[in-house]
């Protein structure tokens, strides 16, 4: 729980009574990331946590509003180093659960779209993306650039991915950087990856943004977007900004959804199958 919230536009945070009189509200954490970065800035060094985290409204065969996240940080790791470490952990777990050894595939976001849709997602305009989405079964109002890419990724591409490979998709568009650094070699992309296994997103990692001012700009930007689409503006984490101001060391970090991982390892179909009390019976 924190007196500050995650401002991410696509994540809805649970709120409750304030921790002290200084704050009206407190927020259940949607990830342990902000706390971890404060520890890293204080000189804690490499760290991990298995955290219960909470996201409002996320309930489906692959989502539960309360779930377990394995998050860890490595000092001086590049994005590529961290992908290697995640792959190593995954291969170890696959062997432990008697799964056949999976091929590890690394593919850039751009190349993925080229391979599955024959487009360069970062060169197309919003109109062209929208007509492609409609052609692929989208129904409704015009999508924004990022919504259109999310549709193509989540609905079209992820269902076609080979199920037996561990697929690392890296260099997401800069507009989807979240808390990742912009790619110094290509400012259209950022240093972010996702791991897909059996068509399911299992992990999300960044070479972390360390610049406090850039972080503050992104928080403010999130809140502006929130206002525009009728979502609540949220108090962003001043403690995190202070910590980054004091100096967040160069690091990479990743969050891995443990319930989904277990679901895949045990070859069951829904996260409810691995949770003793899923949301619908909690």
């Amino acid at each position: 729980m924190s007196s500050y919230a995650n401002t991410d536009v696509q994540i809805d945070v649970f709120s409750t009574q304030g921790i002290s009189d200084a704050h009206d509200k407190a927020y259940l954490r949607t990830s342990p990331e902000f706390f971890h970065k404060r520890l890293l800035a204080s000189g804690f060094g490499d760290l991990f946590e298995i955290a219960k985290v909470f996201r409002q409204g996320e309930q489906s065969g692959r989502h539960n509003p309360e779930f377990s996240m394995l998050e860890w940080y490595r000092l001086d790791f590049s994005l590529a180093d961290l992908m290697n470490e995640v792959a190593e952990l995954m291969l170890h777990l696959l062997a432990l659960y008697d799964h056949p050894k999976a091929q590890v595939t690394r593919i850039s976001y751009r190349l993925l779209y080229q391979q599955y849709l024959s487009i360069d997602p970062l060169q197309l305009g919003r109109d062209e993306l929208n007509s492609l989405c409609q052609e692929k079964g989208y129904y409704g109002d015009r999508l924004t650039f990022d919504q259109a890419l999310d549709f193509l990724f989540g609905v079209v591409i992820s269902t076609q991915l080979p199920k037996d490979e561990l697929i690392f998709v890296y260099h997401f568009p800069a507009s989807q950087a979240a808390l990742a650094q912009i790619n110094p070699e290509d400012n259209q992309t950022c240093l972010r990856f996702e791991l897909m296994w059996q068509g399911i997103e299992l992990a999300n990692g960044y070479q972390e943004l360390t610049d406090m001012n850039e972080q503050m700009t992104r928080f403010i930007c999130d809140n502006e977007t929130r206002k525009k689409i009728g979502k609540k503006v949220l108090p962003f984490d001043q403690h995190l900004l202070d910590a980054m101001g004091a100096g967040l060391p160069a690091c990479s970090g990743v969050a891995l959804g443990l319930d989904r991982l277990l679901m895949n390892l045990l070859e069951v179909n829904t996260v409810s199958d691995v949770l003793p009390f899923p949301a619908h019976s909690a």
Binding site: Q10, I11, R62, Y138, D141, L149, D150, F153, V155, A178
Partner: peptide, 30 residues
Amino acid sequence: EIVKPGKGQAFNRVKIKNLKTGRTIEKTFK
């Protein structure tokens, strides 16, 4: 089926049957 990337827009992907023609198609809504 709900499709919700961790950091992205959520969608509902549905299979729907046209009650006039009997044809089943797939559509996705925000």
